[in-house]
Simulated assay, not measured.
Amino acid sequence: MERRQFSGAMQGRNLRFLGGGDGARKRQAQVGFLLLEHFSLPAFTQALDTLVTANLIRSDAFLTCTFSLDGESVTSDLGLVICPGAALAVASLAQLDLLVVCGGLRTPLRASPELTRLLVLAGEKGVALAGLWNGAWFLGQAGLLDGYRCAVHPENRAALAEIAQLSDVTSESFMVDRDRFTAASPTGAFNMVLEWIDALYGRELVEAIVDILAFEESRFRRTRPALHEKLSEPLREAINLMSANIEEPLSQEQLASYVGRSKRQIERLFQQQLGTTPVRYYLELRVTESRRLLQHSDLPMSEVSLACGFVSPSHFSKCYTSFYGYPPSKEVRHGYVKSTKKP
Rank of each mutant, 00 (worst) to 15 (best):
A189I: 06
G202Q: 04
A122Q: 02
G32V: 09
H334S: 08
L56G: 06
R58V: 15
Y320C: 02
L69C: 03
H38A: 13
H315C: 07
E114S: 05
T288N: 09
L109H: 10
R203G: 05
G147W: 09
M242P: 03
E124N: 09
Q11K: 15
Q265M: 07
G79N: 11
I246W: 06
A256N: 03
K125C: 01
G103Q: 09
A47I: 11
V176N: 04
L93D: 03
R286S: 03
R149F: 08
F62Y: 15
R222V: 06
M1P: 06
M10F: 12
L144R: 00
A244I: 00
A244Y: 06
V152Q: 02
A43Q: 09
A89R: 14
R3E: 10
A136K: 04
K342S: 11
R25Y: 08
V206T: 13
K263D: 11
E172T: 11
A91G: 00
L274V: 07
Y324I: 05
P278I: 06
A29E: 12
S171L: 09
S59E: 13
L283Q: 14
R291L: 15
E162T: 14
P278Y: 10
F138I: 02
R4G: 02
L98S: 02
L36I: 08
L205E: 07
F6I: 10
